[in-house]
């Protein structure tokens, strides 16, 4: 693990997540979270509803404070990074699509250049190049001049991924990027993320309920269960029988041969 840690872009050590209430009361959601994510990897985060997937992602992106442990981004402790430094390390795609109906696709994607532009947000030549590349990589260049309200859910999701790409960060974190999408678009988005991770050498972490698809496409996975948080390759996780513990076994069972879940009759 020593060598891996040295190259890691995003690392969690003994991380505990949850909410801080008033009077220093803590609501612990999950603890002892350990993982080390590398360049060029696509990592899926799975777990049942309410287990703390969103909380983990929000903690990693500094939208809420951690309770304990440490988050290390590019060898630096996240607490030492300012909000502006952090914006050049991690970009996000959130579950709830922003209501930006009056922005064109190009304008929305160019907002990703925010950390790099001057006070009036003037786009330089290199900014425009990054935007163009992001539009191309996500195959949305052809409707760059369209307004966001004219797009389908699948197209909008690609545009939001393009915006994250334009932010030019080593790490991209997506919260449930495949919800609201049909099977084709779910597979499309996951394939796109896989391609971006390997071709652009990004670390891409996303949460999802599509466990079958995630097992199929991800390099590594983080599996959150009530007792423990697992981190490994999908193959190893199947061997360790982690997926069987995801849901109550009297209703849903994981078949290690077909790598799918089935409902018990």
């Amino acid at each position: 693990m020593g060598k891996e840690n040295k190259n890691s872009t995003l690392e969690a050590a003994n991380l505990a997540i949850g909410y801080l209430l008033k009077k220093k009361k803590e609501i612990l959601i999950s603890k002892n979270i350990n993982f080390s994510l590398q360049k060029g990897e696509l990592i899926g985060l799975v777990g049942s509803n309410g287990i703390g997937k969103s909380t983990l992602l929000r903690t990693l992106t500094a939208m809420q404070p951690k309770l304990n442990g440490s988050i290390i981004i590019n060898q630096q402790d996240s607490t030492t990074l300012s909000i502006i430094q952090l914006s050049t390390k991690i970009s996000v795609v959130l579950t709830k699509a922003p209501s930006v109906s009056n922005l064109s696709v190009y304008e929305l994607v160019s907002l990703g250049r925010y950390p790099y532009t001057n006070w009036v947000g003037k786009l330089t030549h290199s900014d425009k190049q990054s935007i163009e590349e992001a539009l191309q990589a996500t195959e949305v260049l052809k409707f760059a001049q369209k307004k966001c309200f004219e797009l389908s859910d699948g197209q909008l999701q690609r545009v939001l991924i393009a915006r994250a790409l334009a932010q030019d960060t080593p790490i991209i974190i997506l919260d449930e990027p495949t919800t609201h999408l049909d099977l084709y678009h779910r597979a499309y988005v996951l394939k796109l993320l896989k391609k971006l991770a390997s071709e652009k050498e990004k670390t891409i972490l996303f949460s999802t309920h599509e466990i079958d698809l995630a097992i199929h496409t991800c390099n590594k996975m983080i599996v959150m269960t009530p007792d423990k948080v697992y981190f490994n390759t999908p193959d190893m996780l199947i061997k360790q029988e982690c997926f069987s513990g995801l849901f109550p076994s009297e209703i849903i069972a994981f078949n290690t041969e077909t790598r799918t879940f089935s409902i018990k009759k």
Partner: peptide, 19 residues
Amino acid sequence: GKSLNALLLGENYAKSLGV
């Protein structure tokens, strides 16, 4: 003006952009 443009994406996105 620049922060206002980022705020169009909502508070969380704006924060992730360094606002």
